[in-house]
Each structure stands twice: as structure tokens, then as C-alpha cells.
Simulated assay, not measured.
Amino acid sequence: MKILITGRHGQVSRELQLALASSAELLVLGQEQLDLADSANIRKQVEALRPDLIINAAAHTAVDQAESEPELAFAINARAPGLLAEAAAQLAVPLIHYSTDYVFDGSKGEPYNEADQTAPLGVYGQSKLAGEEAICAVGGQHLILRTSWVYSLHGKNFLLTMQRLLQEREELRVVADQIGAPTWAGTIAQATAKLIEHWRAGRPGPWGTYHLSGQGETSWFGFAEAIAAQLRLQGKPCARLAAIPSSAYPTPAQRPLNSRLDCSRLQRDWNIRLPDWHAALLECLASPS
């Protein structure tokens, strides 16, 4: 089986390459080979490679930067997924696409389920929602997997930033009123591998949109505390942590205060059990870098 993966160096793509290497021929295309802002190139590449499955692991993920470059964000996050869905439908193969908790405004008092009303607060969330809508408009076999607070041992993410700053500073102020679930990229990749395994075995669940994130909940401050605890266990220097409200840390893009995702449908329909966020953090830290 040939699997086309868009994105080569991203957090999820790197973990996908590890999780799927032994079960399929991977056609991994980075920006140099497949510029998602180039519509004609997308169709050309997919038609030439003729994969059995497409996984779109590439995205414009710079949330604040998207506010100043909406055209690029929409080209990559909205138009490209629609074109990939069209190409997949023409080949009669499935598409797996990753989306985000940022399609919601965070005003709900409990975890979001797949049927809840979307209302993104900024350009990033708006562009990702437009990508979801483009895929759904095409139809065909597809999985849209919404996740949250993705981190790994590679790239730019909260885990690596905190590990560095906690060892550089005496005190670190971290937002405590945004609630969600940190999700290791390895968790996303492992769950995706199981979804593919179910599909190949002829026992897929219904196609459509699902939530896929770490289980449990915490704040960014709580996530930072967990990271700090592991640094202390290693005998490394660690800053004092101070909890602050979002209003004390203004950013160009507004973040949802509630990013919690109800992932029960994924377990019910596809028998995918997701790990607690803290257990996944320990697994990530213990994995080869």
C-alpha cells in the first residue's frame, strides 16, 4: 500500500513516518516537493503518484502570524484540503486530514463534541474550518480529526519552549485560564495507524469528523507544571511558575478559553482508546529524540 503524506518535517508527519514505516510505502512530500499554496501542483503530484491513501499532515499553524497573512493561511488550510479531497475522490481513495480545537470559540462550559456549533475566533481557526467544509463538500471517504495543543520533541511547540525557558529564567508567567488537553504528536500518529489498520482489515467505522486529543484536562499553567516536575526529577534548574490570566498575555490572535474535546465518538465508532495527556507526556519524554 502506498500512502501519500503531505508535510515532511512537521510534528505529526515525523511521528506518522515512524508509526507507518513498517506497514506501507510512504510517499512523504515536503514543501519543496508539494507546495500546498500551488493548486495546480497538488493535482499533478497526486495524479502522478496514485496513492492508496492520502494523509494531509501539513498546515499553516502559526496562529498569530495567520492574522497578518490570511491569504496564505487560507490557501494552505482551506483551498489545499479541498483539492486533496477532490484528488482522493477521483482516485477513489480515502483522505485523512487533521483539524483543530480552534474551530470553536471556547465559550461552552464543557467539552466540545463533533456536533457542536463552530465559531472560530481568528484567521487560523477560520481557515481550518474552511478546510473542513471544503473536504465535506467533496464527500468521498474521509476522516477529519480535530486535535488540540500538539507537542513533540521536534519543531516549535509548548513543551520545547517551556523546557528551555524554565532552565533560563528565575520566574515564568504562564496562562492559567485556558483549559484543554495537551496532545503528543505520537498519540495522533498511533491513533491514525490504528484507524488505517481497521480500514485495511475491512472493519472501518463511519467516515466523517472526529475529535482526537489527549484525555483529561489541564491549563497551559498545569502543562508547564508537569514539564517543570520532570526537569526537577532530572536535577535540572527550574524557574518558579506564576499563574496569569489570558488578559495579562495579549496576542494578535485570540485563543479559546475552553479547548476541551469530547473524543468518545472516536472510541465508540472506531474503537480507538486515547491515553491520558499526562501519561502521553511521560511516553514522549522517554521516546528517542
Results as ranks from 00 to 15, higher is better:
Ser259Cys: 15
Ala279Ile: 03
Ala280Leu: 05
Ala279Pro: 03
Leu281Met: 06
Ala229Thr: 08
Cys284Met: 09
Ser287Ala: 14
Ala248Ile: 07
Leu266Asp: 11
Cys238Tyr: 02
Cys263Ile: 08
Gly235Cys: 07
Asp262Ser: 14
Leu261Phe: 13
Pro288Lys: 02
Ala242Met: 09
Asn258Gly: 03
Leu282Val: 11
Leu266Gln: 05
Ala279Met: 08
Gly235Val: 11
Ala242Cys: 01
Ser287His: 04
Ala279Phe: 01
Asp276His: 15
Pro256Met: 04
Pro237Gly: 07
Ala242Ser: 14
Leu241Trp: 01
Pro237Ser: 06
Gln254Glu: 12
Ser247Asn: 12
Trp270Lys: 01
Pro237Val: 09
Asn271Pro: 00
Ala243Tyr: 10
Ala228Met: 05
Arg260His: 07
Leu266Phe: 14
Cys284Glu: 09
Leu257Asn: 15
Pro256Arg: 13
Pro245Val: 12
His278Phe: 06
Ala279Trp: 03
Asp262Thr: 09
Leu233Ile: 01
Ala279Ser: 15
Gln234Glu: 12
Leu281Gly: 04
Ala228His: 01
Leu282Asp: 10
Gln234Thr: 06
Leu257Cys: 10
Arg260Gly: 08
Leu282Trp: 09
Arg260Pro: 05
Gln267Asp: 15
Thr251Asn: 02
Lys236Met: 14
Pro237His: 11
Ala229Arg: 00
Pro250Trp: 15
Trp270Arg: 02
Ser287Tyr: 10
Leu257Ile: 13
Leu261Met: 02
Pro237Asp: 11
Ser264Asn: 05
Arg240Cys: 04
Pro252Ile: 14
Arg232Leu: 11
Ile272Ala: 05
Pro256Ile: 07
Ser264Pro: 08
Gln267Met: 10
Pro237Ile: 13
Gln234Phe: 02
Ala286Lys: 01
Ala253Met: 11
Cys238Val: 12
Ile244Leu: 13
Ala286Cys: 00
Ala286Trp: 06
Asp269Ile: 01
Ser287Phe: 00
Ser264Lys: 12
Pro237Thr: 11
Ala280Val: 02
Pro245Gln: 08
Gln254Thr: 14
Ala239Arg: 08
Leu261Val: 06
Ser246Asp: 10
Trp270Glu: 12
Ile244Glu: 13
Arg232Val: 10
Arg265Cys: 06
Pro245Cys: 14
Leu281Pro: 08
Leu231Trp: 04
Gln267Glu: 15
Asp269Val: 12
Gly235Met: 13
Gln234Pro: 01
Leu257Gln: 15
Pro288Cys: 08
Ala226Trp: 00
Pro250Ile: 15
Ser287Cys: 01
Gln267Asn: 03
Gln230Val: 04
Arg265Ile: 07
Glu283Phe: 05
Gly235Asp: 14
Arg232Pro: 00
Gly235Lys: 07
Leu274His: 12
Ala226Met: 00
Leu285Ile: 04
Ser247Thr: 15
Arg268Asn: 04
Ser264Trp: 00
